[in-house]
Design a protein around this nucleic acid. Structure first.
Length: 288
DNA sequence: CAGAGATCCTGCAAGC
DNA sequence: TGCTTGCAGGATCTCT
């Protein structure tokens, strides 16, 4: 499940293999993959044709490739199971191939870009960019914690203002972007904070410590090329990450906490799961 | 208006 | 064996 580190690995792959190449042709094999491009698949492919890709950028889990001389950018979100693969033309189509982009030239002239997505939560679309280069439809996405301009004070003030719980806040992309279910559980475990702690109870030092752990766990994942829990995720060249081997909480139900040995618990939460150590991460009040 | 919950989608695994 | 059910979950929509 791609979160910020995985998306960043993909961005670096695009920088190496796709940036500065000119689109010869694009092909949409499943309309749902471009559903956020409201003008439809034909408009999507038509607008790509003949334009050169610029340098890829990322905010949180979104990444985009500027289309030179158009004022627009190709926006990508991998959703749950999306992959951007650079493949030789000769490679057989993947089972869940949704979009193919061919190029006229470039450093890897015998390759094409493929968007592959089993569960079709992800997709590609074209959008106007704001003066700072951001696609207009993601203006509401907050900066991510690896962004040098991320505002820690503003984040903490927002937490104090909210009447919600800390994990919900970590997953709220308008407060802090790039954090998904896996790294939220990992950062909370490292910070010894229960996922249902009300955000209004966090002191400023506690918020800063939590942010530090969010960054640490993301940087650790980045260092090994992203994580892959269910093998659906691979990076832009098809390599899996290895970070899943060093997860401390997520997916470890019943296994001993690496700090205190208490079995890790899994609790249903927002149609998904939260993993935590019941001893290290004490519940606030009546929550079990 | 903020916050909580439902929903989309597919493949795999578990259980009967 | 073959069916049903549950689970994975980011972003968006709907409801309270």
């Amino acid at each position: 499940m791609p979160e910020l580190p995985e998306v960043e690995v993909v961005r670096r792959g695009l920088l190496r293999w796709v940036a500065h190449r000119t689109v010869a042709d694009a092909e949409v094999l499943h309309p749902r993959a471009v559903r956020r491009h409201l003008a439809g698949p034909d408009d999507f492919t038509h607008r790509l044709r003949g334009h050169r890709m610029g340098t890829p950028s990322r905010r949180g889990k979104y990444l985009w490739l500027p289309l030179e001389d158009t004022g627009q950018a190709v926006l990508a979100h991998l959703g749950m199971s999306g992959q951007l693969l650079v493949q030789p033309h000769s490679a057989p189509d993947e089972k869940h191939l949704r979009v193919r982009v061919r190029f006229t030239d470039g450093p890897a002239g015998d390759t094409e870009l493929r968007f592959v997505d089993q569960r079709t939560f992800g997709g590609l679309s074209l959008h106007d960019t704001t003066p700072d280069g951001l696609p207009d439809v993601i203006a509401h996405i907050a900066r991510d914690p690896l962004d040098p301009l991320f505002d820690e004070d503003a984040f903490h003030r927002a937490l104090r203002r909210k009447r919600t719980t800390v994990k919900r806040a970590l997953l709220d992309q308008s407060l802090i972007s790039g954090v998904g279910n896996i790294y939220a559980d990992e950062a909370l475990w490292r910070a010894r904070i229960h996922y249902e702690r009300p955000t209004a109870t966090l002191t400023r030092p506690r918020t800063l410590v939590l942010l530090g752990h969010v960054r640490d766990v993301m940087n650790a994942a980045l260092a090994v090329g992203g994580t892959s829990f269910d093998s659906l995720y691979v990076n832009v060249n098809g390599e899996s990450g290895y970070f899943d081997r060093s997860l401390d909480a997520y997916g470890r139900e019943g296994l001993p906490c690496r700090r205190c040995g208490t079995p890790i618990r899994r609790r249903p939460w927002m149609n998904r799961s939260s993993y935590y150590c019941p001893r290290c991460q004490r519940a606030p009040r009546a929550v079990s």
